[in-house]
Each structure stands twice: as C-alpha cells, then as structure tokens.
Amino acid sequence: MTPRGGALAVLALAAALAAGLLAGPADLAPGDVLATLTAPGDAPPLARAVVWDLRIPRILVAGLVGAALSGAGVVTQGFFRNPMAGPGVLGLSACGALAATAGIALGGDAAGPMATPALAALGVATGLIALLGFARPGSGPATLLLAGIALSALASALSTLVLALSTEQWDLARRVLAWLMGSFESRSYEHVLLGVLPVALGLVAAAGIRGDLDVLVLGHEPAASLGVHPRTTALVTVAAVALLVGAATAMAGVIGFVGLIVPHLVRLRVGPRHGPLLAHAVLWGAAAMVAVDTIARAATLVPLPPGVATSLAGAPLFLWMLRRSARGWVT
C-alpha cells in the first residue's frame, strides 16, 4: 500500500463514518451528537438512543458489511482470475437468499434471531462449492460466468418456488422481501458482535492467500508449479468467501454489487497485487457502504433499502465497466 493511497482510503472511511454519525432523519445538531458521544451520561435519553443505539451500531454493521463484501470480491476475482467476478455475479448471494428464504418459510427464523443469518452463510458456502464443481478453477471466464448465471437462476427459481408454495402466508412474503432488499435498520451491537469474528477470520484467510492469488494470474497449473497448493487455495477461498459473504448476508441481507464494483475500481488504482488490493478494497468498501447508507437515509424520508441503493448505483457502473474493459473478458 502506498502511504498516500492508504492515507486517502483511511480518510475516506473516517469521513464516511463521521457523516453516518452526524446525518440522519432525527434532527440532531452536530454539536449535540458530539456532546452525546463524549458524555453519554449527561445527554438526553432520546439523543443517546439515536447516537448510541441506532447510529453507531448501524455504521459499524454497514462498515463491516462493505469491508466483508469487498474483501470477498477481491478473493473471488483473484481466484477465478476474472476482474468481473463477484459474489453476486457468481450467484452466491442468490444461494444465500435461497437458504434464508427456505428457512423463513419452514419457520426456521423462530428458532432465534441468528438462525436465518446462519442459514444464509451455509447457502453461500454450498453455492460456492457447487460453482467450483461445475466450473473448475482452470476453466475460462465464460464457463464461470455461465455457471454463475445458471446457479443464480436456479437459486432464484427455487426461492420463488418456496414463496409460491406459501402464498397464503402474507407476512412470510413480507419477511422474505425485507430480507432480500437488505437492511441496516434495527441493527444492534449483537449484530456487530455476530459479524466481527467471521469477517476478521475471513479477511485473515484472504490475507494468507494473497500471494497465491497474485501467482494465480499466471493460470492455475503454472501457479501450482510456483508452489501454490491448488486444493488448499481453493479451500481457503471457499472458506474466506463463505465467512465474508455469509457474515455480510447474515448481518444485513442481500447487498448487491459492492463485492464486484469496489475491488474492480480499487484494482484500477492500486494494481493487481492482492496485498494492497485487499487492504484498499476493505477500507474503500467500508467507506462506500457507510456513505451509500448515509446518503440513502439522509436524502429520502422513506428509508431506501441499502441493497436497492447499491444495485441502483452498481448495475450502471457494472455496464460502464463492461464497455470500457478493453480485453474481452468473455472469450
């Protein structure tokens, strides 16, 4: 990481976190927020609730989710040797959504607040293993992309089937939808605690294979001749992506495009080495997620689901990247 680039990323994250703390639908003056932060005991209970119970957990969850998805994107793009790969494009989020939808339909969410999150993580891991089975790591980007599309379509169809089989349950559709749109609402320190460990583990795992991902640019077999253990790398990739996407999906539901766009844009800036790439993507991803959520919350009276906001911003960006990508990545 170049010191200046790193400092910029840290500054961006700090600015996003500050904006997330200061802005919100409750008209709290910045001075009040600061006073509540420094002396919570003396603050009026409502201001304390807004700052300490709503805004701080919210920006922490948003930051963790952004960092996790971007980190997962770096690993996915590196392992599949494709700058357009991402947890969403590969159908992994759809798999998480399927597992969660099925769980909610079968009444699994009544088992505890963390049942749906756990199922989502399991779905993501299963989806990734299926993808590795269909599109072997060495196969071309087109195979990978098509396998991802097929997986995504299959998972979505099964999710719809689950919903169709339970149309008489109106509130089921509502709960599933709320989950599919992604949300940082009503997130507590419990969610932060739930997410922090898997995200940290996932990022450590990703950092551990950063050198192997660098070498994978040469192709999977040439990388093997340079000492990259194919199965171990694949397993660590599965574990890291499942931990990161699973934790993110568990904390906030389905958030699209962050894992694809952020690593891709960061790659344009810092180059293909996965060490700096991972560090920058994690910082920028956290900053972007907090910023998107803060803007969505401050700009509209009706809370815009963050998953919708990221897709609204991400899908056009993705098309733009497709257009400007000089090398045909679908061969």
Partner: peptide
C-alpha cells in the same frame, strides 16, 4: 409529521416524535 398512508419510517424519526 407528513406521513401519508402506511409508510416505512426510520426508527430515528420515531424517536424524534417520541
């Protein structure tokens, strides 16, 4: 507060209305 019909609101607004 200007809400019409059944609408989703941020919990912060509920706190602000108290």
């Amino acid at each position: 507060a200007g809400v019409t019909g059944h609408a989703r609101v941020d919990p912060e607004r509920l706190l602000a209305w108290d």
